[in-house]
Write a protein that binds this DNA or RNA. Structure first.
Ligand code: FES
Ligand code: FES
Lengths: 144, 144
DNA sequence: GATAGCGTAACTATAATTGTTGCGGAAAGG
DNA sequence: CCTTTCCGCAACAATTATAGTTACGCTATC
């Protein structure tokens, strides 16, 4: 597959939307994401189902955040985009009854579960407002 | 893509090889992995490049571990199979100069780097001998 | 009613592992 | 030698999830 860049893209665009304040059309967002409006509608549509954004059709329509940047965490966005755990252990199912395969899978699953807990914890305490703040610092401060 | 099950598969088969002690042919290993010999050669070939197994052609040939199970860690196998970090942050490259995109990517990269460190640490202290031991306990003890 | 939006269906493109077939070469055994 | 049993490798199809694209319908505003 192509690498799943939806989370990164959504963070990017949500922060822009928050900073701009008003409504943004799929067309303008597509330019930000270097893609086309249909992809934007598809992905933002998932966020709408989770109450993070809302859309309005017709002239003057577009997309808008339902909460301010400091009330949306990275975890909120991640959870909306991905069902199930953020990190999945790559297990094998060649011989489900084999104790060795089960023990191997178990090791991988436990290690991934622990790693995922850390990842989720970090996502949970990072708000879009903080990303916006970082962006401003980078823009005015040292490049990179 | 199809989920990358190579690490799980290699752990499984390496433990079996260690427990059986002698040489195993690609044919027999393919049966363990519910696949065919070519896939086995392809994947074990990578491990051979990293000195974990060795192969011999001709009659009576096959694959053999170069070290005992307690001298191979999950990390050794993972490193052999994957170049670069075990966990990669799914970043976007739509507008590389945009500070917001950079800040978003940066958050994801840092979170993943921290999670990867934990994952790697767990891999590093887990030997194949421990997996073998777990498997024996599961086989004789309670199912699951 | 013309225009600017979103919503959605139906494709195609892309990328990485997996599965498969076929052939060549090497080692052992007779 | 010649057959059998191995690995090595090239080449190609299958799979699967996201991304990209085209097309059409619907709604709200002007
Ligand atoms: S996409 Fe234009 S600045 Fe982030
Ligand atoms: S594959 Fe036969 S027991 Fe693990």
């Amino acid at each position: 597959m192509t690498t799943d860049g939806r989370l990164a893209r959504m963070l990017h665009v949500l922060v822009h939307m928050g900073l701009l304040g008003g409504r943004e059309t799929s067309e303008r967002i597509a330019l930000m994401l270097n893609t086309n409006p249909v992809v934007v509608r598809r992905t933002l549509g998932v966020l709408r189902e989770h109450g993070i954004v809302e859309s309005e059709g017709g002239r003057g329509g577009g997309w808008k955040l339902t909460r301010s940047l400091d009330q949306v965490t990275v975890l909120d966005v991640q959870r909306a985009l991905t069902k199930g755990p953020a990190l999945t252990a790559p297990v094998s199912r060649d011989h489900p009854t084999c104790p060795v395969e089960r023990a191997s899978n178990s090791v991988l699953e436990k290690a991934h579960a622990a790693a995922e807990a850390h990842l989720i914890a970090k996502y949970a305490v990072t708000t879009l407002a903080q990303i916006a703040k970082d962006a401003k610092h980078k823009a005015s401060g040292t490049t990179q």
